[in-house]
Design a protein around this nucleic acid. Sequence first.
DNA 1: AGGGGGCTACATCGAAGGATGCACCGCCGG
DNA 2: CCGGCGGTGCATCCTTCGATGTAGCCCCCT
Lengths: 216, 216
Amino acid sequence: MIRVVVAEDQAAVRAALVLILRSDPGLEVVGEAADGEQAVRLALELRPDVVLMDVQMPRMDGVAATRQVVEAGAGQVLMLTTFDLDEYVYGALRAGAAGFLLKDLEADALIEGVHTVARGDGILAPSVTRRLIGTFARPGRPDQPKAREAVEALTPREREVLACLGGGLSNGEIAERLEMAEATTKTHVSRILAKLELRSRVQAAILAQDLGLVAR
Amino acid sequence: MIRVVVAEDQAAVRAALVLILRSDPGLEVVGEAADGEQAVRLALELRPDVVLMDVQMPRMDGVAATRQVVEAGAGQVLMLTTFDLDEYVYGALRAGAAGFLLKDLEADALIEGVHTVARGDGILAPSVTRRLIGTFARPGRPDQPKAREAVEALTPREREVLACLGGGLSNGEIAERLEMAEATTKTHVSRILAKLELRSRVQAAILAQDLGLVAR
DNA sequence: AGGGGGCTACATCGAAGGATGCACCGCCGG
DNA sequence: CCGGCGGTGCATCCTTCGATGTAGCCCCCT
């Protein structure tokens, strides 16, 4: 049984959502919230599998609430909105939402979405998917499987250093974090630059970023 | 009526796909290809609405074929694969694919996918969606409206320099491109670092990347 | 055992980066 | 008119970076 908390400020819409969810015997609505703060409180208390969260809510917006729920590991968050504005989508995804659907969806699409995020997958409204793909594939991030391969060819230690470069760290900071002499860090950086055919740590950092290699 | 070309090297699988597609009265399979080259030729000739493309194919792989089809504007490409390996997914999406599905899907999911990409939206297998979201929302890309504001506060010249930093250029290269002395470039870089509260050009480059400020 | 070869490590030194002080110019308000 | 101010530009000085040479180490190989 998948346990769901519904967070939505408009009572009528919330009621409709609950009704839809209840129509699936595999879902159980364990709580309802009318604002973001309440949503977070409920999620922390009830530890549901999924929180269905509206973007716009009083007291704390859905994105901020999502961040808190995700950080606490208190369930997967599936966001809902009326308009698929970029700010909402990106904000929500960065906040850790597992999915993003528009309110114009069919009942069974919603139910399927809840099941999808409950098992750890992601789901997006088709129009959002298209834009996300576009953003991801935007020029200026020339994927190069080549780059990925080249990075695979690095030694483990070198990859660690590369990740630090991706985090914007200096040689000294890298040395401290990885517990080696600064001189050693330099060796690794040099090797990385040579292997990846780059001319400076800046380019290495950019490449690391593109590949998601970022030490924090 | 949505016109579809099916590109898949294994005859049995291709036959199955065609059968599934034909079961929907809104779809018409106008061509079949057994390798990438043939797929591109067919697409250019028939200008279908959608090309259903396998990733692994002889003579030209699906990613390369996708790139050509997309560049020619010869239809939306929906990619299919057995395994959702990163290389495939990222490569396909950057090549311009409108969607990416796994072969373990249900017949109606495939049909729905074709309709979705035909109307210009995107579609991804749920597991792929999750990873794409993760990549997109990965730490190190804190979309920070703050950062954007701060960058707005830079002078025009400084923004130009920042864009060059985002491109991974050295001071010397920046000086050449913007036609100023290297010493001047350094001044601007210093000012940028101060204003954005960064400690090195590497961090500035990463920030510029996140904001899409990239000189090429 | 002996001998590569790859990984990690460190020191040295010339090159690039970054902070700082200062000059010039155009603009605005007094 | 002129004094201030923000943007731009350059030179100086110290720091950090990056290339290079070398060494210990471990593992594999024959």
